[in-house]
Design a protein around this nucleic acid. Structure first.
Lengths: 335, 335
DNA sequence: AATTGGGATTAAACCGGTTTAATGCTTTTT
DNA sequence: AAAAAGCATTAAACCGGTTTAATCCCAATT
């Protein structure tokens, strides 16, 4: 409970001015005698002096903080994504301020304002909401740069995503190749852009194949395990021989639902997911899915927002990371 | 990119002093004429004035920030725990600064110092390390109160945990009741206190039952899915009829390992886990485990640290939340 | 009419730093 | 010997707020 040591205390004990201390501790020591430099550095250790963060940020006009908003802390995809952000941010001496909105627009708004209030230097946003105008309003008005994950910017802006259309197409091709012409999709009730794109890529591929997917075969639900589970009956009612779960969490729910319905994967029905969360390798049967480079999306997003923060005039970037098919055991070939 | 509005700007436009604006905006408006009050409030909206966080924190000597350190952002147990913290913190107008150390003491240390530097008002720590003296050193020296999750304080200090010994005992009783006298445990290589306690409760119960567990039946590995998977062979070598995975993640790994070994759960071997992550309900067969109130542990921890922050003299609290057995399908009765 | 009192407002100090523009002293240069 | 240059250091302004202790003005008391 020792009272906090300030730069003034340190200066007093060193019998120099605070300017001197400040300069030396910030490495602008060029013009100070090595005697003074040593004295100050020594005293810093001795007294355990740590510059006051708020005082520093106030005058530097930056706290090297990045606000990060994700819809769901629970989804392993986002955990990996967050790890990527943390990893890169730390390297560049930034700190992420992480918020999970639980898929609620109200909470998103709250956290957006909280980030503004805390003077985040920039934000990385994976919104759960499809209409993101309001984000731009809040952030732009406050001069906070941001980068969107998996969403199209309202106005021209930075963006990182993985190639969702491609991912959808990859899955469709694979399923078609394995003889599944009768598929149903379990998607979100209010799909965000990335989901729309996945769906689009998938559906288009089937159309091109001459085996279009009827609208009735698009089931909607929540993007959670429970959502997948709850959608089982509706999906089954369409009598598909394969189901495309728009993300892996939903696939997990479907696994359970199908098991309870007495159906065996992939003998009775095939399933594919999307994301490639690590769990996919552990469940039985192992899940065939599309790999999204979640970690890399995180590091890339962090790099980009830091660049933007430090140079507002950088050209706008829209980065689309590659995806790939992860072929495992949840699909069987039919004839 | 409109330059940030300061209180001075606002005061100028309102033709009053900054003192007036400050007072009014902080609700100390009692002595101001309603005309002035209205004018200021109106202008605040109009100009979109948000008080500078760092300036405010500097003088208030608090940024209402709670540092949170967890070993692993990936583990659903911690996701739920974090949600609990976030939930409670927000209510009390605090913001959690979340860090995941990836089970590395080096990173833990880094984040500890980062929290000090950022002037966290307090910390909630779920360390991955069993010897936590160093935490106390860093934090205590800087006058930052903290509360430990699932660890015993070095010196008398606040603590939240769930009743781990009880949980271990619960599992042991259940297994014994179902006729499993020959069990093996998969535990951490360097178990933190909570894991030691679980193990202790489990082992003691078996000992009391007159069927002690041989040391050879305690297998150690990493606390991840992969760790569980990797431990399969060693566990199987002890020829158990039931395995206690010290947490659910490990159990998931074991599920996969056992499947590959051609063993059926629970027909050929029974498994129990610990934590009750939501996944347990979805895998096949559903996992029997011990429920830890992760969310409540989070809210409780947040409440406690906030109390401590706001009143350093509060009596020290050690809260142990109740656990319960969740009986599902991964154990069969043998005779 | 002088004094008191209270309502409305603000000047000024302060929080803990950073930075710019001096200042004072030596040492060189001319 | 005076002017210029160089080195080491620091005074003072500033960042954007909060808070304490005035100050001002007008109505009410004595």
């Amino acid at each position: 409970m020792t009272k906090k040591v300030t730069i003034t205390d340190l200066a007093a004990r060193a019998k120099v001015s605070v300017t001197t201390v400040s300069q030396i501790l910030n490495g602008k020591a060029a013009r100070f005698s090595s005697k003074t430099v040593e004295k100050v550095k020594q005293l810093q250790k001795e007294m355990g002096y740590v510059p006051d963060f708020n005082a520093q940020s106030l005058i530097r006009k930056s706290g090297r903080t990045i606000g990060v908003l994700v819809p769901n802390l629970n989804n392993p995809f986002f955990s990996r994504f967050l790890r990527g952000i943390e990893d890169e941010a730390i390297k560049q001496d930034y700190v992420p301020l992480i918020f999970g909105s639980n898929n609620s627009q109200e909470q998103e708004t709250h956290y957006l304002f909280e980030s503004v209030r805390r003077a985040a230097d920039g934000m990385i946003i994976a919104s759960a909401v499809s209409d993101i105008n309001y984000i731009d309003n809040i952030l732009n008005q406050n001069g906070i740069p941001y980068i969107l994950i998996d969403q199209a910017p309202v106005v021209k802006g930075d963006r990182v995503d993985a190639n969702n259309e491609k991912g959808g197409a990859l899955l469709a091709d694979y399923l078609i190749k394995n003889g599944h012409t009768n598929v149903t999709v379990v998607c979100a009730t209010k799909p965000t852009l990335n989901l729309q794109e996945r769906l689009q890529g998938f559906v288009e591929t089937y159309k091109k194949n001459g085996t279009p997917i009827p609208d009735a075969n698009i089931i909607t639900t929540d993007m959670t395990k429970k959502g997948g589970y709850d959608a089982t009956a509706a999906a089954l009612a369409t009598k598909p021989n394969a189901i495309f779960a728009i993300n892996d969490e939903v696939a997990i729910g479907l696994y359970r639902g199908l098991e309870e319905a007495g159906l065996k994967i992939p003998e009775d029905i095939s399933i594919v997911g999307y994301d490639d969360i690590d769990l996919g390798e552990y469940i039985y049967p192992k899940l065939t899915t599309v790999h999204q480079p979640a970690f890399e999306m995180g590091t890339k997003a962090a790099q980009m927002i830091i660049n933007r923060i430090e140079d507002q005039n950088e050209p706008i970037q829209q980065v689309s990371l590659p995806v790939s098919l992860v072929e495992r055991d949840s699909v069987r070939a039919i004839d």
